[in-house]
Every structure is written in C-alpha cells, then in structure tokens.
Design a protein around this nucleic acid. Sequence first.
DNA 1: CATTTCACTTGCTTTTTACAAGCAAAAAAA
DNA 2: TTTTTTTGCTTGTAAAAAGCAAGTGAAATG
Lengths: 135, 135
Amino acid sequence: MMTKKIRSNCPVSYALELIGDKWSLLILRDIILRDKRFYHEFAASAEGIATNILSNRLAMLESNGFINKQRDTEDRKRYIYSPTEKGLDLLPVIISMMQWSDKYNNETDIRPPLMEKVRKDPKGYEKSIRAKFSA
Amino acid sequence: MMTKKIRSNCPVSYALELIGDKWSLLILRDIILRDKRFYHEFAASAEGIATNILSNRLAMLESNGFINKQRDTEDRKRYIYSPTEKGLDLLPVIISMMQWSDKYNNETDIRPPLMEKVRKDPKGYEKSIRAKFSA
DNA sequence: CATTTCACTTGCTTTTTACAAGCAAAAAAA
DNA sequence: TTTTTTTGCTTGTAAAAAGCAAGTGAAATG
C-alpha cells in the first residue's frame, strides 16, 4: 500500500499537510460555523468550490476523521455531514484566522454578526459554538 | 492592472487565500519560531522546499507585508528576512495548529522543547516569542 | 582575476485545480 | 410501473501550480 510520505514531525507541518489548502478549512467553517450539512449547501457557498474538489475534500476530511458522513434517514438520497471532535478541535485555528483577517482586511464581511462576538469574547464564542455540538 | 479576484469577504477565506498553502506558514514558522533569517536556512529545513517555490513564497510574503527583506550589511551578498507585525500576528494561527497536532499526531516531535511550553502556557509562549521581536 | 558563496532563475515533468458536462441511485410524480 | 427530478457525485479536458535538476549572476574571497 502506498502511504504518502510525511515531510517532518513538526506540528505546524503536520497540520498543514492535512488542512493546508484553500478549501478544507472552508468546508469545516461551513459545517461548524454555518451549520451546513449537505453537499449542495457546501457547493452553494460564495467561494464557488468546484464539485470535483468538493467531493475530493469531503472524502479526505472523512477518511482523516474530521467529519462523519451518513445517509439522511428523512431523505435517503442525500447524506448528512457532521463534524467530529477532531474537526471541532480546529475551531481555534479558524477563529485565530478570523481575528487576523479582521485586523488586516477592512473588506471583511461584518454581516454574519459572528465577528462582533469574536472580537469581544473569542473564548466565549468558541464555547458557544462547541455547545451546539455537544447536545 | 490585473488584480486577483477575491473569493468572498469571509475572514476565514481571506486568510486562506493568502496563506492557505503548504509552505507559507512554514516559512513564517522558521522566521518567527526558529529564528531563521537567510534564504539558505529556509532551504535547509526538514520539509525540503524547492528553491523556486521558496523564492516565490518569499516574494509573496514580502509583497503582502508579512516579512521584510534587506541586504545583510555584514555580508552584502545575502539578504536578511524578518517578520513584520502583520506576520507576527499569525502566531496564534501557528500556535493553535501546534496544539491541534500535539493532540492528534503522536509522532509530533518533542525535540524542540517548544511543545512543552505550548502545552502548559500557550499565551505565555506567544508573549515570549513576541518579546524577541520587540527589541 | 579566478573561485566560491548566496540567492535566485530556467526548463521540463508531474500533480493539482478549475470548469463544463455527464451519470447513477433514490425518491417523487404521472 | 415508467418517467422525471433531486442529490451527490464522476469524467474529460485545459490551465495552473508544484517538484526536480541544472544553470546564472552579483558580491565577496583568495
């Protein structure tokens, strides 16, 4: 079996090898912060991911334990994607990126009232997001 | 002038468009955490970046204000690369990646005694790194 | 002034991404 | 029961990015 060779044992490098691309964290953002659950919802995000890339990343995220995939029992022709603890544990990475962009990109969207809460109380924000998934 | 079209105004997407690749944050890690300053030092890192990619990323990091580049006055045939505040402000992203990898990759290197301090006191670690550059 | 060091650059191949179109399983409609 | 629609992909092809080896040019060094 052909396993991909690892670059180094540096923790930064390790994380980048898994989610160091322009799409994986965006899909996790949709699942974790925007409560998206279905393939078509990810495909509809503003960034416009190509469906082959979406399919590829969902498979990668699932095989690496970031998300779960299961048939929707209410509508059996679709699947429900949900975050695992491993995926949710990337929330600090996502939030620190948000904080950085909030400081350096003045075009950053304020519409999702997320940002306001992130500014005032990032730890509280993280907890409130996590709480959604501990039910 | 040809400016690259932005995907969306989402702060996560914005950060990923700039540093969402497998190398940019690794170079910043070298500069910020490992006190590397020269081209040949980055090229020598364990991950083995190709020199054309290194050159490309250093130019990108400089043009986007993450790092500064200046001639070394002691050895004028080389350049010194140093982080800007904008680059240093990615430290929380880097540290949260380290924490995540520490939890999910048991091969993560412990050699740089960094990890121990990150585990015990991540905020203090961040401050101590920042202190190096405020001189 | 020839040699070495440092920081790239170039050429070529391989891999990844992007875009458009097509396809199959499941459910709904006729 | 056959047709149509929805959902979640897969395929084909082109463009872009990454990887690899070799080469180049400016600045110091002998």
